[in-house]
């Protein structure tokens, strides 16, 4: 065991795209789908829910408490519980991860809308914006930095958490950890960790870039 190198490059070369379902590239693809789908679904659900919570404040306390409870549940626990409902499918991982994304995104949307200064809101009203257009053209754009900060956390956690799904056979790159463990073979484990961290760094970088594009005024202010 001790003379086994951490990385065997020839194993990577042979298994990158061998056409089978266990090829590294196939696992990577799977991983990307299972990590981003929950964040996307979470965002689609969190926007209206967050808006509702910001509009009717009494909704926020119970929603936040529920999300807090959800977030404290271990991922493996939720996977196991959903296993009895959705079986050994991708949904068993995607649905719980969507709840985790929601737990981060709903507070982010509410905090984002709360971060809009009253003066800005009043200016928009004075300029003749109706509520719906004010929301779309003024409040949501101003809330973008806070919402995106939540989106970054949700995305990175989701990418990392998918691998736990390997314990129920649906883990994308996480399957490499199980494979490496069963064969006492370091290479797949190292490959899995490196690819997951790279994927997370890349996604995080893209979101930072998106924030710069979506909030050009914050850059203008800095250079002014």
């Amino acid at each position: 065991m001790s003379d086994e190198p951490l990385i065997r490059w020839d194993w990577i070369a042979r298994n990158w795209a061998n056409g089978g379902p266990t090829a590294i590239s196939a696992l990577l693809e799977n991983h990307i789908v299972m990590a981003f789908l929950p964040v996307l679904l979470g965002l689609v659900v969190a926007l209206p829910l967050g808006l509702a919570c910001a509009r009717w404040r009494w909704l926020y306390q119970p929603t936040a408490a529920l999300m807090n409870v959800t977030y404290s549940l271990p991922s493996l626990v939720l996977f196991s519980i959903f296993l009895s409902v959705t079986g050994l499918t991708r949904s068993t991982v995607v649905i719980p991860l969507t709840f985790f994304a929601l737990a981060i995104l709903i507070p982010a949307v509410v905090d984002g809308l709360a971060s809009v200064p009253d003066s800005v809101r009043q200016s928009a009203v004075a300029m003749g914006f109706r509520p719906a257009r004010r929301l779309l053209r003024v409040e949501l754009p101003v809330a973008v930095p806070v919402v995106l900060a939540g989106l970054r956390i949700a995305t990175v956690s989701s990418i990392s958490l998918v691998s736990v799904g390997a314990l129920i056979g649906q883990g994308g790159l996480g399957n490499l950890f199980i494979d490496g463990w069963q064969r006492q073979f370091y290479t797949p484990i190292v490959v899995g960790i490196v690819l997951i961290v790279l994927l997370a760094v890349l996604a995080d970088g893209l979101l930072v870039l998106a924030q710069r594009l979506l909030t050009p005024w914050s850059r203008a202010r800095r250079t002014a």
Partner: peptide
């Protein structure tokens, strides 16, 4: 935050 715990666990223990 991006480090997958399962992978880290398996690697360290091996």
């Amino acid at each position: 935050r991006a480090l997958p715990t399962l992978g880290l666990l398996v690697l360290v223990v091996l």
